[in-house]
Amino acid sequence: MARDRPASRTGEEPAATRLPPFERVVERHGPTVLRFCAARVGADRAEDCFQETMLSALRAYDTLRDAGATRSWLLSIAARKAIDAHRARAGAPEPVGDPAILDAPSHDAAPDRRLAGAALWASVRELPAKQREAVALRFAGELTHREIAEAMQISEAAARRNVFEGVSRLRALVAEDDAR
């Protein structure tokens, strides 16, 4: 019977030995982190947010327990950095989008869609805190609702609700802009 087995854990490798080289983390998840930062703090401040996130992640890399959860771990760090950036600039107006990242020439997306995206993300930053966080994690970070829940330390149902309500309110904001 399973429960009669001796409680030995000697077969387990230490977590650090299972982590892939950080270079691969940068390659696989770096662009997502940058996109998330651009979504959360605006493109002109995105790089600072990205650099601070990746350096913090590198510093704390050996504390990552599950290599399979790397992206949501990175984005939870990025989410904290984004909040710090907002606090540091409390009162300063939110920037609307900057050509450096959003309108770079060799971008895949069509230019009009890109511009729409930049303006749209500026609208996302007008959403209530939890909604904009959830919307950014969902669409810029491409996390599942479950991963969003982990990154925001809320329930999966709350994550789903925040995404849904965020997008619904965003649609209303966009409709208002169009009406103007």
Partner: peptide, 30 residues
Amino acid sequence: LEQLTASLRGAADPAPAEWERIRHELTTRA
């Protein structure tokens, strides 16, 4: 909603040259 989410998704990928510069900055600081 689909259009909206497609726009959100398509928003902010860095261009390869820009990404290279940002990556280089990261490794230099690291």
